[in-house]
Amino acid sequence: MQRQQGLSVISVLFIMVIVGVGVLLAGKVLPVYNEYAEVRKAVADMASQTGKGETELRREFMNHAMVGDISSIKPENLTIITTANSVFVRAAYRREVPLFANVSLAFDFDTQAGQTPQ
């Protein structure tokens, strides 16, 4: 007499729920990290542009934000310090992503580039 092997219906449903939750989380989390990558790229580009004023750099970030679909941080929320031969840019922000009902994920991001002023 052979014993049956394999997954029961309840096991298959349980695995489907786990996979579904994973897909839901990935669908919510990946766009947040893609946006953060765009912010890091914009901050690094801005820090490499010496000779520009703070207003010009904020305008530059606004252009990056439109192209890179950055909506979590505005140009006026950046910390920008310019000197004669260096630029320091810091972007620190929080992004909350609703999952369902009153449950949300919170992400705190902080990136900086350039030379810190002495």
Rank of each mutant, 00 (worst) to 15 (best):
M16Y: 08
L99V: 13
G53W: 05
V12Q: 07
V23H: 13
T50C: 07
V29D: 10
M1E: 14
P117D: 09
E35S: 07
P117H: 10
A26V: 08
R95H: 09
Q112Y: 06
K52A: 10
K52C: 00
L30R: 08
D110G: 07
T55F: 04
M66A: 07
V97L: 06
G68A: 12
E56N: 05
T111Y: 12
A44E: 00
V43D: 05
P31V: 11
L99Q: 10
L99M: 14
A65D: 03
A47K: 02
Y93E: 09
R59L: 11
E76M: 05
L24I: 13
D108S: 13
D110F: 10
Q2F: 11
T83S: 15
Q49K: 10
M16T: 15
Q2Y: 14
S8F: 08
S48A: 13
I73G: 02
Q49L: 14
S86K: 02
R94V: 15
L105N: 11
Q112I: 02
N102K: 13
G27H: 05
L7A: 14
A91W: 10
H64M: 01
V17R: 12
V103Q: 11
M1T: 13
K52N: 09
T79P: 00
A26H: 06
V29P: 05
Q115I: 12
I10E: 08
V39G: 10
Q112M: 03
K41H: 05
G51K: 14
V89M: 00
R58Y: 04
I81R: 03
P31W: 03
G22T: 10
Y93V: 06
A65F: 09
G51L: 12
